[in-house]
Design a protein around this nucleic acid. Sequence first.
DNA 1: CGTCGACTTGAGTTAACTCAAATCATGTGG
DNA 2: CCACATGATTTGAGTTAACTCAAGTCGACG
Lengths: 229, 229
Amino acid sequence: MTTIKQIASIPLFEGLPTRYHEDLAMIVADRAYTRGQRIFSEGDEGTGFYVILSGRVKIFKLSPERKEQILHIFGPGEPIGEVSVFAGQRFPANAEALEGCRTFFFPRAAFVELIKRNPSLAMNMLAILSRRLRRFTELVEDLSLKEVPGRLAAYLLYLSERHKGSHDVVLDIAKGQLASLLGTIPETLSRILAKMTRHGLIALNGPHIRIVDREGLEGLAQGEKRLPP
Amino acid sequence: MTTIKQIASIPLFEGLPTRYHEDLAMIVADRAYTRGQRIFSEGDEGTGFYVILSGRVKIFKLSPERKEQILHIFGPGEPIGEVSVFAGQRFPANAEALEGCRTFFFPRAAFVELIKRNPSLAMNMLAILSRRLRRFTELVEDLSLKEVPGRLAAYLLYLSERHKGSHDVVLDIAKGQLASLLGTIPETLSRILAKMTRHGLIALNGPHIRIVDREGLEGLAQGEKRLPP
DNA sequence: CGTCGACTTGAGTTAACTCAAATCATGTGG
DNA sequence: CCACATGATTTGAGTTAACTCAAGTCGACG
């Protein structure tokens, strides 16, 4: 596939006249990363942003004690590092490839020029940033107002939705990473999965989880109910 | 002052040709709120967004047990509720006046039209959303990776910076509200303020706080040090 | 002066953490 | 195909930061 066609298939650039796809193809840099490789680090100078073509990337913060909090996990078609294009110019967090990844890198200045000429590109970007703000809102709510069982229940229900509402879901990330995404540690996650199993909310088999009591999980996710000892 | 001049003085609309200020003046609605009054609630249909002219507004989430987490406190010149203009159309959180407030309300459709015609308005909005994402990043980091003393220390240093680096700061919100902003409860905040005083980090007098040991606070805020019992 | 809300202090509980060890899973070299 | 190294996950035991509940104390205002 040509670079132009790949660019045209990125949601962010949807609805853009073809000649702009050509312009973008002129400024783009193709960058690949291997599993575990750092894409950028918090505080780095942001000279542009990336769009993921394949693979998944985690965006995360680290504490001095090396505890990790995952902010997002992004996949193909999604932009990363765009905040540094529009505010400040340093990356606010770290990005690392969860698996082999291919990305397009767009230098800042050229992209800003393009956005100034293209209202629909600007609107696309505004929509993306707004969705991310909305998700952060939920993340803060989860971290601050729910306990770990509630966050886990919400995540399982989210996975179920992505699987078209199936009762059988498969964790698409390692449990240690899931713990970091939920703002906890592997030991705690493991204990809570075991407890949910004991209480008949789920059935657990490695990364395969069957949702046995959907209402029970929903109650937990809403913070209405709690998980007894 | 005329409506047009008030609009022209809003940072978001800075750099916009005068005729657009006139357009905005045509679609704006003037709305005032009293202390404690709800401006919008989570889940409400977002038919537009607000810009604060005077007073301060808190944006917050509530748990079923009525525990509150403040996401932001915004003041004059800042837009609120803009996320619902660009993504989904429901407000992701609640907004309430912390004191008497005057706002301008801009209906969604007309504003979107305007932004499509004005690259500089779009860029201004992108910058604002990006700054908010950056702040959320810090909030999540604080909630997940720091304990309450660290968050409080960071807040005190932030206040000090706003006061041009003065060692004497004044809390501009009630302590109960500060607790909610820091993701804790008034009792815990009170105990930690007392402990910081005992350890000679600060001197406390009602809402007046003197920063005695700046390095000590910085160590806490970075999560490098902890507060002994 | 009394009342109300905001704040502080005390006592006890608990969710989630740390540290340590056991178990399981996977992949490599022999 | 086996034996072991490596990393991921689970389980156990103990600790702790922060919570809940309850009881003051303080300050502003009618």
